[in-house]
Write a protein that binds this DNA or RNA. Structure first.
Lengths: 174, 174
DNA sequence: ACTAATATTGAGACTCAGTTGCAATTGGAG
DNA sequence: CTCCAATTGCAACTGAGTCTCAATATTAGT
């Protein structure tokens, strides 16, 4: 993990940015997370670990981490972004379950090749791409005859952040 | 275009929905549009054609059109949705220019095949997918030595809807 | 270590696209 | 023609994300 820290530090100094306590803490937290997470997950984990980092800082730091190459941002169809660590891993795309919200990864060098060919043909310089397959995972398949119990960890855009929410706290009157 | 209208009507009655004047007008407008559009484009066109349809109705109708199979929704990375008519066309994916916002289409049966294979392997039932390549089109290529004039029709999330906007703007009279 | 210059932070106001509650209206099946 | 479920417009509301600003912290240079 030391290497990742170094990579981030290098990125920062290359860009005349500072390595603050907040950034250090966020990086640390991210490296310790397995799988995909969104801003609120991260915030909750930070709080649980006893760190106070504002939402604004988190939103400002994530793009830095993305630029440094340590983290990848997934633009979900719902509009809510999710992130994943890219440290020590290589590119892949995602199957997103509409039932339980889980994300399954897949790799296809073949698709990558095709993409490049398409770009060449269209004289387009690719800087990034999104390739998501939406549907239902084996556990959530609604139609299936089996015992399709679903939505174990389901969290929809609305329902999600239930009680005790870290968010806003209620935009009470003003 | 008559066929499209029929397709929509069938969809509606199949679902106990009504063919209102608003829905008729929206459908008509959409069928007359070439290329990709967002909700505000559509609203502006409707207004120009002398039709008064509320934003809420537009937002409520588009999903119906998508479900009926006449329109396809593009979930843009920016978070702002765009739409395109699917009537008489078949599936394709997109190259999105970050410079001028233009959208170039591409087809790849090969990618489709790979997707299906992936889903089979992961025991995943696909209901839809998003495959977007982001980057710069030939006209916008920033680095290119040529005369890379850019952003002819650029419209970012923030800047976009300049003067005279139809939006919220004057939540004045109606 | 000290300092000046610059980047960063937290809070909360704000944006923007999209959604929703509600009372008034309107298709369309019978 | 009648009745009722579906629909509409409006305005208030959501939720994710951005921005402003005063206070604070990091770092390059000495």
């Amino acid at each position: 993990m030391r290497v990742a820290a170094t990579q981030f530090k290098d990125y920062l100094s290359r860009n005349h940015l500072k390595l603050t306590r907040e950034r250090r803490v966020i990086l640390e937290q991210i490296l310790s997370v397995r799988g995909h997470f969104d801003v609120d997950d991260l915030l909750v984990h930070l709080r649980q670990a006893g760190h106070r980092v504002s939402r604004a800082t988190l939103y400002r730091t994530l793009p830095r981490l993305v630029e440094s190459g340590l983290v990848h941002k997934l633009e979900m169809a719902s509009g809510q972004a999710r992130y994943e660590t890219m440290f020590g891993r290589h590119h892949h795309d995602h199957l997103v379950c509409l039932g339980c919200g889980s994300i399954i990864e897949f790799e296809s060098p073949e698709v990558e090749r095709i993409q490049e060919a398409v770009c060449r043909r269209k004289r387009f310089r690719m800087t990034g791409h999104t390739h998501q397959i939406r549907g239902y995972c084996a556990d959530c398949e609604p139609d299936a005859g089996a015992g399709g119990r679903r939505a174990s960890g389901a969290r929809t855009r609305r329902g999600g952040r239930a009680a005790g929410g870290a968010r806003r706290g209620g935009r009470a009157a003003h």
